[in-house]
Structures are given as structure tokens and as C-alpha cells.
Design a protein around this nucleic acid. Structure first.
Lengths: 118, 118
DNA sequence: CAATATACATCTAATTGGGAGGTATTGGGC
DNA sequence: GCCCAATACCTCCCAATTAGATGTATATTG
């Protein structure tokens, strides 16, 4: 049941506080969700490449002496805009599901703390 | 991004207040979510058949004079149990996503009103 | 006759998800 | 030196889920 492009939204959100490389993004999603969300690297890297193609993240290679270079991703202004839209969409979506799944009273006052919306 | 078997949960929830036929379930999901969730009948009916196979809903044909008979679905006790589990899972899932997508403070106090959770 | 709403259903295409597999470096233990 | 674990990157593939198109039939309205 679909909150579309959810992984992209999560990646973009991981980058909001600063640049990260792919492996670290995967770990942040795991630990930030207390292990509830567990995306493999096989999902993260292709998503990152799509995001780059769309101009939502930019990358540079961080070279390190002795260790292999790694690719560091940053949010572009467009990426930030997309993230904000995705956050609003998540808000709509999760309120809708909560209203239906909620104990039947269906107040839709459900989820107004964590995410500023509309 | 996956809240698994979300449509099934929504159908089960629609049936909580009483039996309904497929078409009415589709409409209830639409109107109950203020048009945010729009599952086509092409998704509802197969899901209903799976639910029946699993014993989570029971059906009977309601015959009507002049009009074609229609299939009316009810929640079984097992279906109610499953629904309750799904509601708890939705709670975990939506809190996890909200914590990551939320404005970065990541308090995870995010969504504690609408749904009682573990 | 055509359009609309009710009611049920199947099929296909696209998207997603979850792994398996592959490369390379650093560091620890044997 | 060899093996394992963690870090770090990447591609491919298969299964499950989803979205949406299409098809049937009846009753009502125009």
C-alpha cells in the first residue's frame, strides 16, 4: 500500500542534516527507525543513482589517504524541495490510513505532532 | 515503501463496523480517507478473495429480487485478530517513518494520539 | 440509444522489495 | 600468511505488490 518513492524520501531526509555516503545512509535509516526499516545496500545505491540523475542530490568523491575514496552525497536545493513535498505527502497519507485503521471513531486528529503539515 | 498487506488491513477495518459488499468497501476507503486512498475495484476483489481463503472474512450471497445477487463480506474472529495485529504494525511502521521524515529533531514523539500502540 | 451508477471479476504492466553476488581495504585473531 | 568481520561500493535478478485497463451485467435516467 503505497507511499510512493518512500525510499527516496527517506534518503533525502537522511541528507537533510549534512552530506553522507551510501553506507552511512543505510545505517542511519536502520538505527533512526530502531531497526523497523531495513533497506539493503542493494536498494540504497540504485536509489542514490536515480536521485543523482534527477538532480536531487549531488555527489563528490572524498579521497582519503590509504583508504579507498568514497562517494559523498549532498542534498541539492531541488532535493530539499522534493523532500518537503514528500513530507507533506507522507503526512496526508499516514493520516488517511490512521483514520481508517484507527478504532473506528475516525476523528482524523490522528497524527498532528511530529510533522508540520498543510 | 512497505506497510505490508496494507490493503488487507484497510478492508478488514472497513468491515469492523459491520458486513459490506466489495463495491461498498472500495467507496468507504475512498470517502473515509477523503479521497487520499483510491484503490480500484481491480485491487479490492482479489484481496477479498485472498482474505476469504485465509479465513479472515466470511461471505454469503445476498439475493435480491430483480437485481443480481451480491456478495456480502463479514469479519471473522480471526480477521479481527489479524486486524488488531495490523493496526499495531501500522503504528510501529508509521512512527518509524515519521521519526526519519520528521523535521530532523527526531524525537519519535511523533504520532502517539490516534492509535494505541504497544 | 447513450451515459451513469451499481456490482463483480480478470489480466497485464510497472514498481518495489529483498537478496545474492562481486570488488576492495583495514584491522583483529590464529 | 590466512580467515573473518566491518566498512564501502556496486550490479543483477526474482518475487511480490500495485495501478490501472478491460470486460460482464443490471437498473435508472435522459
Amino acid at each position: 500500500m503505497t507511499f510512493r518513492n518512500g525510499l527516496e524520501a527517506l534518503i533525502l531526509a537522511s541528507l537533510r542534516e549534512g552530506p553522507l555516503h551510501g553506507y552511512a545512509i543505510a545505517q542511519r535509516i536502520r538505527s533512526g527507525s530502531r531497526e523497523v526499516l531495513r533497506f539493503g545496500e542493494g536498494q540504497i545505491y540504485p536509489a542514490l543513482h536515480r536521485l543523482e540523475e534527477e538532480g536531487l542530490v549531488s555527489t563528490e568523491w572524498e579521497t582519503q589517504e590509504g583508504r579507498p575514496a568514497r562517494r559523498v552525497y549532498s542534498l541539492t536545493p531541488e532535493g530539499l524541495g522534493r523532500l518537503e513535498r514528500q513530507v507533506r505527502e507522507w503526512s496526508r497519507f499516514s493520516e488517511a490510513v490512521s483514520a481508517l485503521l484507527g478504532s473506528g471513531r475516525g476523528d482524523a486528529k490522528t497524527c498532528r505532532e511530529g510533522l508540520g503539515h498543510g
